[in-house]
């Protein structure tokens, strides 16, 4: 066991994957010599050489498209997109090729590849550096979409992603990169993709969140607890495919549901989760389900971002309404 934060856990996991499987290659902008702008790949090029850990020219479409070719020819590429707001030029590759290869060849060719990128905001970053893209990726059939919220989960989920025979979009909450440390075992373990986790059991209200917001949601649950409201908090962990069972089971128990996420509200993951709850547990509901999500506005520049991103107080205010309905 060692104490790790999210970024050191990812670095440690990539190290482990590179050591275990010679098909694994890691690349992206500033990934090699510098070790990544967030230091996710620091030391790896020195250890595994320039053929397996390398810098690429500045071209996101090429980074993803080249990973497609590598995966088709027997490698297990782990590509890094420096910031999620820079991934758009690669959407053509992700949507037209990454997500579709298995289906369009009727299972003959498939893409065991991972696209990692920082996710979400709240760290006073530059313009285009605070986006939550879970909505976009979650909508595309053929992709798996993962968002870890702890160093321990990041390791287990990233190892699952690298070993998965389907493409995985791995969204790393940048706010959590250095937020806290946790005991992470040195040895190999995986956490299954597609499984949510009940982080705090409760009986009055189901709250689903993920990424950095999960931690705020837990704080909000503590505030409510002091008021006698016992919220159950679920870390979704995987956006696609959704763990419907864990959510529905919880809602059937509590009768109340709220989802909390960073991305803009309209057409976001919250809409999907509310629809899921309505379809699967409507008759158990004692209050209208609630979406606590980003405003439908462009994420403000750093001086104004605190208006956009929710803290535990604001979340608690929303959750209280569902609990007391």
């Amino acid at each position: 066991m060692a104490l790790m934060n999210l970024i050191t856990a990812i670095n440690h996991t990539l190290d482990l994957a590179l050591a275990q499987d010679e098909r694994v290659v890691v690349f992206g902008e500033d990934v090699g010599v510098e070790g990544g702008v967030f230091r996710a790949t620091v030391g790896l090029q020195k250890k595994y050489g320039e053929e397996r850990v390398f810098d690429t020219p500045l071209a996101e479409s090429a980074i993803v498209g080249t990973a497609v070719g590598m995966a088709l020819n027997g490698l297990r590429p782990v590509a890094e997109i420096q910031f999620s707001g820079f991934v758009y030029p690669a959407f053509n590759q992700i949507i037209s090729h990454v997500a579709r290869m298995r289906n369009r060849t009727r299972g003959q060719r498939y893409l065991p590849m991972v696209i990692r990128m920082p996710h979400g905001g709240g760290i006073k970053a530059l313009e285009h550096h605070s986006e939550s893209l879970d909505t976009f990726f979650g909508h595309i059939p053929g992709l798996k979409v993962v968002v870890p919220s702890t160093p321990y989960d990041a390791k287990g989920l990233l190892l699952s992603a690298i070993r998965d025979d389907d493409p995985v979009i791995f969204l790393e909450p940048s706010k959590l990169y250095r937020a806290f440390r946790q005991e992470v075992p040195e040895e190999d373990y995986t956490i299954p993709i597609g499984k949510a986790k009940v982080v705090k059991p409760g009986s009055d209200l189901t709250v689903v969140s993920w990424g950095a917001y999960l931690h705020e949601a837990l704080k909000a649950a503590e505030l409510l607890q002091a008021e006698g409201i016992d919220a159950e908090v679920i870390d979704l962990r995987t956006i696609s495919p959704l763990d419907r069972e864990t959510i529905l089971e919880s809602v059937k128990k509590t009768g109340r549901f709220a989802v909390v996420h960073e991305a803009a509200k309209s057409f976001g993951p919250g809409a999907e989760l509310v629809a899921l709850v309505n379809e699967g547990a409507f008759l158990y509901l004692e209050a209208p389900p609630l979406r606590l999500a980003g405003f439908d506005i462009t994420i403000p520049l750093p001086r104004g971002e605190h208006h956009y991103f929710m803290d535990a107080q604001r979340m608690a205010a929303g959750l209280r309404q569902v609990a007391n309905f």
Partner: peptide
Amino acid sequence: HHAVGVAMASKIK
């Protein structure tokens, strides 16, 4: 891009 990736993989392997 796929072609370049396939070719790079051949070289890496």
